[in-house]
């Protein structure tokens, strides 16, 4: 139970970072944190039904559910890609507006337009 509560807390921290922080890099951190919390939750709970790794070398006991592991592999890679793209956008925003603060960026772009 305690792990799940901690993961919920982790999720809320990430969501708070996305909403409240003005720095766009910290927002991207937040996005990574919420993604990580869901991935950990999925893997953790999927291993409640067995302790062995799902690699079938004869005569092993009940394994962890392999489906969450395969799904999360996909989700992690997608998360990395989204992060890479958002960081590239952040760099580009910094180059054009000279700031990482979302409000400042917005103001400068509006002034320009």
């Amino acid at each position: 139970m305690i792990e799940r509560i901690l993961l919920l807390v982790l999720f809320m921290i990430g969501f708070w970072a996305i909403m409240a922080h003005r720095n766009i890099i910290k927002k991207i951190f937040g996005l990574n944190i919420i993604n990580a919390s869901v991935v950990i939750l999925f893997i953790l709970e999927g291993s409640r039904i067995g302790n062995e790794v799902p690699i079938m070398y004869g005569g092993i006991g009940p394994t962890a559910d392999p489906i969450p592991q395969a799904l999360m592999l996909t989700a992690i890679v997608i998360g990395v890609c989204v992060t890479a793209l958002s960081l590239a956008l952040a760099v580009h925003l910094y180059r054009t507006s000279g700031s990482f603060d979302i409000d400042v960026i917005k103001r400068r772009i509006q002034d320009e337009a």
Binding site: A88, H92, R95, T96, S97, E112
Partner: peptide
């Protein structure tokens, strides 16, 4: 995105 450098505001 990274290949492009155009600045809106003076540094």
């Amino acid at each position: 995105l990274l290949a492009r450098v155009e600045s809106l505001v003076s540094p």
